[in-house]
Amino acid sequence: MSAVDLPKEQELVEYRVERILEEANTDTRIVVLVRQDGLLDTFPIWVGAAEGNAIKLALDTMITPRPMSHDLIKSFAEHLNITIQRVVIGDVKSSTYYAMVHVANKGVERTIDARPSDAISLALRAPCPIYITQDVLKRRNTSNLDAWLAKLESKNVSAPEVQET
């Protein structure tokens, strides 16, 4: 995304939220991210029900009568002239993904630590691009993906394998 030479593992790959899946009988949702650079890849992230609903509202461009939490954060940004530049899912530890929200104000850039659900919810409202680092793409646990696919095929849903809480 920039001309600066980044180490390979810090290179960013753009993803887009394709949809939110509901897991029957659980309090979790799956945010399905799809790769944007032509390569076929799906990146699922398990989030809580409230977090998933916040993302779904933005994905469906629903206008709620009152501002929801991430609408409020966007409203703060607008009032204070803060630009939400991008969201980067940049780390994974013990099956928990870590995101950074990159913001700028009068040329001063800051990064803010966030759960992917908050970062994605805000990214859809900003709107701004969502990236995943090569490092995270490499280190993600594919056994989770297999479990996920198995779950999709089965109605018998068990506890989530990758939760971000």
């Binding site: 940004a77 204070l80 929200v101 913001v103 800051r110 966030a114």
Partner: peptide
Amino acid sequence: FMKSFLDAY
């Protein structure tokens, strides 16, 4: 996160 957002500036 909302508070961090405000704290950042």
